[in-house]
Write a protein that binds this DNA or RNA. Structure first.
Lengths: 338, 338
DNA sequence: ATCTAATTTTAGATCGATCTAATTGTAGAA
DNA sequence: TTCTACAATTAGATCGATCTAAAATTAGAT
């Protein structure tokens, strides 16, 4: 495998000049640059990042640690992070922890070993801030995204889950629903709890009793959500609308309703959360609260960029609001007469 | 940041010994190992992979290039690859090309620059074998997975799509269906074409005319599949069963049927392909051809391991068969009498 | 032609590990 | 005691880039 020296020899310049060309420096004269670039092609030169990383203080590498790559919000998030960081020449390395503490600490360690310039993390539920002491100690910037762990002195990009869930519920209330259920998920208990609080906020703001609203929590799968929904709906006085923890749960709920011969948006209203790509393509198109995950990814990228420039900045949070995407699964409740 | 030298000083041994401890060498005595490990903790040592990679011939790093991380079959695939490679101490770096040639060549280059020990790729549709000449030239093992490009002299792990689609269709034929539709997808035209050929194989093997079976190809979304399905079914003599390109298309088809007030598995039979996790959790649970993506990932990992040991092995393909998962969306066709 | 300032190029040290080959220590056999 | 294996440790060179500070070149002004 060829090195800078080989290129330098062929181009008739020094190693240092070739190195400058590699990095696109403006110091080198146009004529020389062309000469060097031709030589690089001629000898089949491949840049050696390990060598570069060893010497220089920056690796132009950023770690992204997320709990479940199969969840579309995280692929959107990734896209947003790349939107900001790729143009700056940073490569984003993804690690999927699968909600496992063990995998998470393994990846945290590995990324430290490869000397990432920064880290964006959505920590596994229950992670202690201590898991990140190495990073703090060494002074590598860490940004939290979507999920937040307690007492961790890091920037944060995410959404206001409580307010979002409140707005979702208010949407149903505004349509005239007075008996509304909440279908929760067990993936991230803390997020689920906060969204439930938002649900209660909305209900109470209309002088209704939150305690009288049916609530059910299920595992994070279509089947579990379908079963839970059938259960919550198969009672003497069923709710006329359901607020779902997220879109995936709402999809499961749809399937449950279909199984009972009910049509979402006609017989029972349904609202999701996240607005993943499939929501719009769902049948009927799903009303949901958009968190604009890609935008949140961009925020995280920006926060990281700022902190990499200046590690001493005061801690900063970018908490955006979920926005209502009114589609076809919500409508006024059926009146008794119908 | 501390180095081997700092650790060596504190432990009272040489740099070389510390290095051996890092790599878990059996050469170093138990007593010394403990002494060194204590010293590592004391000085807060963090291994520097760039330095190691520069000197040693192996980086213990493997690249995985896939077209769409949001597609569950690829996260299953990743899991399978890790099953094999993580125990060997190899880290798997994922890159999502998003079906973009440009992103793909960017990642191929970057992984070359980081000197991966090997590469597992599912190439963007239409990629030429030339995209990989650098790897061939340099002698880095490349394994193809799921998708295959022409004339590329690489090992391959995947499934027999043609036979799988044939078996899917035969399942419907065995149940008594004689008028069966094919709902294709435009994501990967080559795979779609091969699955369609399998469909034809089955139909013809029963002395039916493949040309008389309704075929429709749609974009790869729930909505598109729902629309396509409604279209294919809303004719005077609709098919009694549908073979879908994959599970996602089958999901969309389900939604289309529900919209028409039809129940999958009762009014119309439906079979998918892939057996992603959601298939079993679908309502009704989806009959599908399982490709066991995780197992394919393991195959790819094994092929890579073998080739890393010996680059001169003859080219090897591991083509597995999709297996029928009979669930609730397929049943004998409704007779006219019913 | 000479000097100054700006531009472009370069030599040599350096990053932090691993590798090779040689050295030291230790146990058992003669 | 001396020799032979074998186990454990190490010095010094090395990987291929970047950095620093100095040198060479060029352009512009006098």
């Amino acid at each position: 495998m060829t090195t800078l020296i080989d290129v330098a020899k062929v181009a008739g310049v020094s190693r240092a000049t070739v190195s400058l060309v590699c990095r696109g420096s403006s110091l080198v004269a146009e004529k020389t640059r062309l000469k060097v670039e031709r030589a690089m092609v001629e000898v089949g030169y491949v840049y050696n990042r390990s060598a570069a990383n060893l010497r220089s203080s920056l690796t132009n590498t950023v770690g992204l640690i997320i709990p479940d790559i199969a969840n579309p919000i995280y692929s959107d998030l990734l896209t947003g992070v790349e939107d900001v960081l790729n143009p700056l020449g940073k490569a984003v390395f993804i690690a999927d922890t699968n909600e496992s503490q063990e995998r998470q600490s393994h990846f945290l360690q590995r990324m430290l070993e490869m000397r990432v310039d920064g880290l964006i993390v959505s920590m596994v539920a229950g992670t202690k801030s201590a898991a990140l002491t190495q990073y703090i100690h060494i002074g590598v910037p860490v940004i939290q995204v979507l999920r937040m762990i307690e007492d961790a002195p890091f920037d944060y990009a995410g959404i206001n889950n409580r307010l979002g869930a409140r707005r979702a519920t208010e949407h149903l209330l505004d349509l005239g629903h007075r008996h509304i259920g909440f279908v929760g998920s067990a993936t991230s208990p803390s997020v689920n709890q906060v969204r439930y609080l938002g649900f209660c906020d909305a209900v109470r703001s209309r002088n209704l009793s939150a305690e009288s609203m049916p609530v059910i929590t299920c595992k994070h799968s279509f089947a579990a959500a379908a079963v839970a929904t059938k259960q919550i709906v198969s009672v003497p006085a069923p709710p006329t609308g359901l607020v779902c923890y997220n879109d995936l749960i709402a999809f499961g709920a749809t399937l449950g309703l279909y199984e009972l011969g009910l049509v979402p948006g006609q017989d029972i209203s349904l609202i999701g959360f996240d607005d993943i790509e499939a929501a719009e393509n769902w049948r009927p198109p799903l009303t949901t609260m958009s968190i604009e995950a890609r935008q949140i990814g961009r925020h995280a990228g920006t926060l990281l960029t700022n902190r990499m420039k200046n590690i001493d900045l005061p801690i900063c949070s970018m908490v955006s609001e979920a926005i209502l995407k009114k589609r076809d699964t919500t409508a006024p409740p059926k009146t008794k007469a119908q």
